[in-house]
Design a protein around this nucleic acid. Structure first.
Lengths: 230, 230
DNA sequence: ACATCCAGAACTGTCAACAGTTGACGGATC
DNA sequence: GATCCGTCAACTGTTGACAGTTCTGGATGT
């Protein structure tokens, strides 16, 4: 079978590389990114790099005229705001998915949760796996909402930023199990075809995730302070 | 008082011009925008124009590699999705504003509504005024939410698209008055410092606006068809 | 010791030219 | 007459160079 020739460009390539570098921690939050330097490293001219950085503006980097771009800082306030936005958008996504999701899709979602369950069982301490699993679940719902707007913003704005945060603070103990339970509850409401209930369940889940994330952030800050004293 | 020196650039200038041109109807939905042509008209090189069009991608234009950008098409589905997104984000904004808005801000919001009331009274048929007035009200709440994420997305994504729609379909009769009544209700909930109530009121308001907008779109389509027959 | 000032380096904003792609037109073929 | 194919103009993607700005470090003066 012939596979499609994907029309790519240096700019998209550069975009992917920079995103990967930031979300994998290669660049620190607050670090300045030089167009010229990036262009040299990627072995392209400044044009495509410039385009890549422009696309990231407001998402992963902030840009100041005549000075350049920096990787965004991600403090407690920013984290809170990110979760407020998530709660709003994903709540609506769940509401819409309760109506628009097909029976076949519901089945596949159930199978996804089953996979997560056994992954947690066997994985034990390896919470990391759950992080991308969590993302899978939420992505599936954004997808099924049928609302391209919401899907685009969740993928292009929210999840990128979330990955930055996850990179630097580990989950609270027991969070994976709690999240799975929340996911089950959401699935149940979706199966009931109850938009109201699905939105409510999703919002409770994200509120809980927010509390957990903030607690994790604060405990990480406390640990760092302790380390500085010693 | 000294006023801030705004560091501007040809790219931002081009961005503003293109936004103005699209939201004022100078370019039709679906029309192709040529970088070279725009650059000639604006008397700059293609670089800044390219940057401006990139910033508009997904917001007011869609971009296809090697082909170019087109002004977005705005049909019934897109309109619905826009209002779902609005409902989610502005509902959350109202919720947050109920907690974060200062008493002084509440007072200024009340005065804003008073101005709108007298504008509608005296304006009579001139509904157009109410359109930007409506935007003022919603902007004020997004602002008071304190959530920079939501504010940025509402200003940069939602309201631009909304303006495109408003340009091409007039309000339903009596919509301005109904909207003002909704706004009053929202203000009351904000004054009560009731996050739950403020969100609910805002969501009802935007749901009503959605119904009205869709009805307006359909009646406009019906009128066009009638015109084609004759 | 400290603040100020001033070159030079490095960087961003902009431009004009080149390379590769797309879509359209017109002639050749069946 | 319809279809296919090659040619060509126009456009987008990319590049390297230039202009103007910001940052840096050392020299200068207090």
């Amino acid at each position: 079978m012939v596979t499609q020739i994907r029309p790519t460009s240096l700019a998209s390539e550069a975009f992917d590389r920079v995103v990967a570098a930031i979300t994998s921690g290669e660049f620190e939050p607050g670090e300045k990114l030089s167009e010229a330097d990036l262009a040299r490293r990627l072995n392209v001219s400044r044009g495509p790099v410039r385009e890549a950085l422009q696309r990231l503006e407001g998402r992963l980097v902030s840009r100041v005229p005549h000075i350049g771009v920096r990787v965004i800082q991600f403090g407690k306030e920013e984290l809170k705001e990110l979760f407020y936005l998530r709660e709003a958008m994903e709540g609506m996504a769940a509401r819409l998915a309760a109506t628009n999701g097909s029976d076949r899709w519901l089945k596949s979602l159930e199978e996804l949760l089953e996979k997560h369950r056994s992954a947690i069982r066997s994985g034990g301490g390896r919470i990391y796996r759950q992080k991308s699993a969590d993302e899978d679940f939420h992505f599936a719902i954004a997808n099924a909402s049928g609302c391209r707007n919401i899907k685009r913003l969740l993928l292009g704005e929210v999840y990128y930023q979330l990955r930055i945060h996850r990179l630097r603070s580990s989950s609270q103990p027991g969070r994976a199990e709690a999240a799975l339970q929340d996911h089950r509850e959401i699935l149940q409401q979706l199966k009931n075809r109850d938009p109201e209930g699905a939105e409510a369940a999703m919002r409770r889940h994200i509120q809980a995730a927010r509390e957990s994330a903030i607690a994790a952030l604060e405990s990480a800050a406390a640990t760092r302070e302790l380390a500085e004293v010693n």
